[in-house]
Design a protein around this nucleic acid. Structure first.
Lengths: 195, 195
DNA sequence: CCACTTGCCTAAAAGCTTTAGGAAGATGCA
DNA sequence: TGCATCTTCCTAAAGCTTTTAGGCAAGTGG
């Protein structure tokens, strides 16, 4: 009785909040039921199982980040755009660590293809149009940017850079500088080992 | 009866193998007990709890990677050393995905300080002595390398680069090239926004 | 050979996941 | 309004994991 009004979307949203509060791997069907003050089994009418719930949270996070990225990129080009996109990821991870962790969830190919992940790839490619890269190199650059953004954000979030002296703000700025320089002078052909 | 000869080290090693086979997050005290054909409670004499087990696996992975890195760096400098170190991480992650995942486990500061993590940091710094970087920049470069290595490896491992056209081998080579170039011409001061 | 330590065991409580089937609230149609 | 139906949430129950407490037997040392 006293229907609470559960829906897959409400559960996903609440699951995302829970993830940000206690960590993505602590998101459990039980915890979510507790949060709605409802019996555990009730959730299984709205969500297939635990994995399904986690996948939905991942998709939500990817979509939210893509929305932010699209807004940040609008009207920007070159280094401005680079910094804007990079900051979207970093800021999102800081504001929503659980959601960010969710976005790293390995999705099966079909789900991934239907996710906002493809928007991310497209936006990174769009950003690179501000630099002079032809096709094979553009893909390499997309992958480099993805690696740096994800690697930096996850190391920073995991405390990998704590305690050390120059603050991470400074490092972040310098890395964006470096990436911009690199993209503007992308080393052409595979260089000879004895360069 | 029939003592199996459990020790913390044997459990850790077996846990690492299990992680590589079924994924780090599937490493459970129960599964490990099954593997030794022993009752679950028996493991609790050797390992404090589930978290303790996971931490031990993480420390093992960090140490193994550090050993490989030390060997790979011996006698190398410059781009050779850069590629050698980078490949240690990439190869380790491919050979031991579960252990690599374990190495990302967030450790509490004390444990982290006593781990092989500090050797990794030292080796990256040593590698950078082959390039001309003075102190604040050196730290920035350490963080950049850490980000790229970790980011690339984890995206590649997670299938983030699958399906696309230029193969990842090629991209990896180009990224190492790019990093080498970047480190040799590290952009000096914070550049002006309108560079 | 006896005392002691250690290693693995049984037992049990507590939490999470998932399925099956029931009952009350909402909805739709006459 | 009245009744059938569907939906939402519930109880019950089985299975798995974690963790603690206490017991017996296998090695170890004197």
């Amino acid at each position: 009785m006293a229907r609470v009004g559960l829906t897959p979307d409400r559960l996903t949203e609440a699951g995302a909040e829970l993830a940000d509060e206690v960590g993505f791997d602590q998101v459990t069907v039980s915890a979510l039921a507790r949060r709605f003050d409802v019996k555990v089994a009730s959730l299984y009418s709205h969500v297939k199982n635990s994995q399904d719930l986690r996948t939905r949270i991942a998709l939500l996070a990817l979509a939210e980040m893509a929305d932010r990225a699209a807004e940040a990129l609008a009207g920007r080009a070159g280094k401005d755009a680079l910094a804007a996109l990079a900051n979207v990821y970093r800021d999102y991870a800081r504001e929503h660590p659980g959601r960010y962790a969710a976005a790293q969830l390995r999705l099966d190919p079909q789900t991934a293809a239907a996710s906002a992940g493809v928007r991310h790839a497209r936006m990174t490619r769009a950003l690179l149009r501000g630099y002079d890269l032809t096709e094979p190199d553009q893909t390499h650059a997309v992958r480099l940017l993805g690696s740096v953004f994800h690697g930096y954000v996850s190391l920073e979030l995991g405390g990998g850079f704590s305690h050390s002296a120059p603050d991470t703000e400074e490092t972040w700025a310098r890395i964006l500088d470096a990436l911009d320089t690199l993209l503007r002078n992308w080393p052409a052909a595979p260089t000879d080992p004895r360069g």
